[in-house]
Design a protein around this nucleic acid. Structure first.
Lengths: 346, 346
DNA sequence: CTGAAAGCGCTTACAG
DNA sequence: CTGAAAGCGCTTACAG
């Protein structure tokens, strides 16, 4: 094709009057080259506008600077936050993100893993612990560090960083009971594995409190949204009008519940308690501010990259190493039922 | 290193009893290979578990299946939506997304363009029209299709798909005036070029209406958030208490204004009109529902990919081809001041 | 500290 | 429809 121009390493070598090998070395580890040669090479690179060909490098070395990231969806602010953390973690490294979305399909995930692995990535980040057996096998056989993010669970493939969604939801449910709510319900959308575990945590709390009878749960496989929160809450009220508190699978739903409650003149928090999950920034800004379970999505992404970089730098990060980032219940006015509300921090 | 295993094209050729070239051909264009050879090759590929090496392919052909996407930020739901559209547009193609974020820095953008271009991508998508001259030069010299997204403007580098933010904001301001608001203000965060143009559209409307004196504008370079909407609105009310409507740079701010107005017992829409920008899903769910300027971010991403795929398929898409996706003002209760509100579509 | 040789795994023309 | 030859632009050992 366009065989015009395109400066190669040999061109640089010629201009700097050294061998190509020396240029290659200067590029990869300048300390291995004499200062004099280094200077000449640097100048030649600058003058010629040389840019290395990553494909050639990858073919020769079997390595790349690519970090593959495989997540269910990008239009979910939770993953957007994770991506942000990944991006921040990448600062100062030559690593580049290759992004793939599974749309919550294990089969798509498997295919993506195959494609991404064929690129010989420097590292791979995948969401969750529920890969198909074939996907797990692929990842287990990968020559690069693999980080499972979002949750910690038994038997990580390699590295893992996340939190226990079961514990988070259980803590939230316990909070509702502690506030005096007696008929809490669970609202869930996009019931992915993590949502399922949140639901399980909710149920565990209710059972422990002897409230396990009704199973006051409304869920849908639909993707989450604020509008969906409105609708799910309407469904819930039609089915279980005695509900006095709602634990939402995520903050979007919680916001929808708040709006719908307002539309129906249901007083929050006195008649209805609302709790979200993740503690999106808007939870503290809402009126009333909404209680939520804070998770640090950015830290998750950043930490995943940190683990990969450490492994690449030859540092020790044994297989099976899992980092539990935990969660924090942030009580706010939306669940402040029987207490003095004189002082109201947001 | 690990020279063990790793099946190559030659291995497949050997097993299928054809030459490597024929295998290569079968992979790229099966119709050019006899059905018999094709069968044998397919079987060999399956049995050996052969996966092509993209680096080798890239080096030999000078092409890759990579689409570079360069956006300011991922933790901004506008770009998350665009990414979603890109992702959808990619369906059924072998293209893979490589993602880079500029953090709104032209210098970082330039570096990213350089790095991404060195990969010989199949296409490049960049946000906005305000690249540095050096970045523009790089893009103009690119051998792949380049799509500028988010807005349409004069002198696109190659392809473009977006809308006029100036027009969108002006239409919103006109709507506020038409509703009888007489002292509209503008609230803006993260004042990137598109926000600047929205502000300009707002000002143009006010001037045309003879209301250009005060310049009722509160902006900040801080990234946008709902909480920030609360704070900016507080600033605004302190400075210009006569304000009776707010045009927000985006929906996050608008939601923050709604919450803050509620906290202050400022009636919406009678005492205060609120209008957002982008029409995020939550605008229709809010109570009251919030007027906004709808933009189709997903379509933007999908269309960008469509243009790239068309160009790659050899179809005609002349340089300078710009697609204006337009916008649509969605009037809702938050600006329904003097009208009968008997029927209230959301 | 530096270099000559070989090779990474494909594809590109060019023949036949 | 099929193949032999050359080469894409680097890096990897191995010497010196």
């Amino acid at each position: 094709m366009n065989k015009t121009s395109r400066i190669t390493l040999s061109d640089v070598a010629l201009a700097a009057d050294v061998s190509p090998i020396t240029v290659s070395r200067a590029l990869r580890d300048p300390s291995k080259v004499s200062p004099l040669a280094r200077d000449r090479i640097d100048r030649a690179i600058r003058e010629l506008g040389y840019v290395p060909n990553p494909a050639a490098r990858a073919l020769a070395s079997g390595r790349t600077d690519i970090v593959g990231v495989i997540i269910p969806s990008v239009s979910n602010n939770v993953f957007a936050d994770v991506m942000r953390g990944i991006d921040e973690g990448l600062q100062g490294s030559p690593l580049i993100v290759q992004l793939g979305t599974t749309r919550y399909s294990p089969l798509t995930e498997e295919q993506l893993i195959r494609v991404f692995l064929s690129q010989r990535p420097a590292g791979l980040i995948v969401a969750g612990h529920d890969q198909s057996p074939a996907a797990r096998a692929l990842l287990a056989g990968a020559e690069c560090p693999v980080v499972q993010i979002m949750e910690v669970g038994p038997d990580p493939i390699d590295l893992a960083v996340g939190l226990s969604h079961f514990d988070g939801a259980r803590a939230a449910a316990e909070h509702l009971l502690a506030q005096g709510y007696r008929a809490p319900a669970f609202l869930g959308a996009q019931m992915d594995p993590r949502s399922q575990r949140r639901l399980a945590g909710f149920r565990a709390c209710l059972e422990a409190a002897g409230l396990g009878g009704d199973d006051p749960v409304v869920t849908t496989p639909e993707p989450s949204s604020v509008s969906l929160g409105c609708r799910l809450f309407a469904d819930l009220m039609a089915r279980l009008p005695q509900t006095d508190a709602v634990l939402c699978n995520n903050d979007d739903l919680a916001l929808g519940v708040l709006f719908e409650a307002r539309r129906r003149n249901i007083a929050v928090p006195s008649r209805l308690g609302i709790c979200g999950f993740n503690d999106h920034e808007m939870m503290s800004a809402a009126e009333p501010p909404i209680t939520s379970v804070a998770t640090d999505r950015r830290a998750m992404g950043a930490q995943a990259i940190r683990l990969i970089r450490a492994r690449l730098a030859g540092q020790d990060a044994p297989r099976g190493h899992a980092v539990d980032l935990g969660f924090q219940l942030i009580p706010r006015a939306s669940t402040r039922r029987n207490r003095s509300s004189a002082n109201r921090p947001t």
